[in-house]
Amino acid sequence: MVDGMTPAPRDGVINEHRFAIPGLDITPLPPAFRVSLRAGPDDVGALSQALDVGLPVAPKSSAIGKSGRQALWLGPDEWLIIDAEADPMIDLEKAKAVHSAVDISHRNVALAISGRRARATLEAGCPQDLAERAFPVAACSRTVLGKIEVVLLREGPERFRLECWRSFADYAWTFLSEAALAARP
């Protein structure tokens, strides 16, 4: 690159959006490192060590490491690794175990949905049972919201993290803000 040229700055897709009504906040979450990690059952241990977070093996569950790195079970050989600070790709490069790590930091966009009406808002478009009994704190799942695919992680009794593909973020935002107005807890 030509000397003195400033590198290209980073944009987001919905990072300026805000939505708050009594009982509900929808907030775009800041960029994060994300890796789609795939591996067979025999390599879970080695990869957990490399990542410093125990990869969950139970369906619909997630784990969080000491540094705050999150590992979400999405399928029997698939995890979504999220880290706000450090790039998990670097740690995975050192891992000897056979695996596939693909950087999807920019593929996904995340939203936090929190408040008394959070569950009702999500249930406007998500057909899964989101009662705490069926979807407790730390539960996560790939599922649908209206007409798009999303990943849902329950971070608290009334707080969810929703991840979707970048080009569906507009839809997710519009859906949630529309559904929120009619949501009855």
């Binding site: 789609s36 693909v102 950087d103 999807i104 920019h106 593929r107």
Partner: peptide
């Protein structure tokens, strides 16, 4: 086969 597929359409 030891191979995995990941959609990266929206990554790039």
């Amino acid at each position: 086969l030891r191979v995995w597929l990941t959609s990266t359409t929206d990554q790039w």
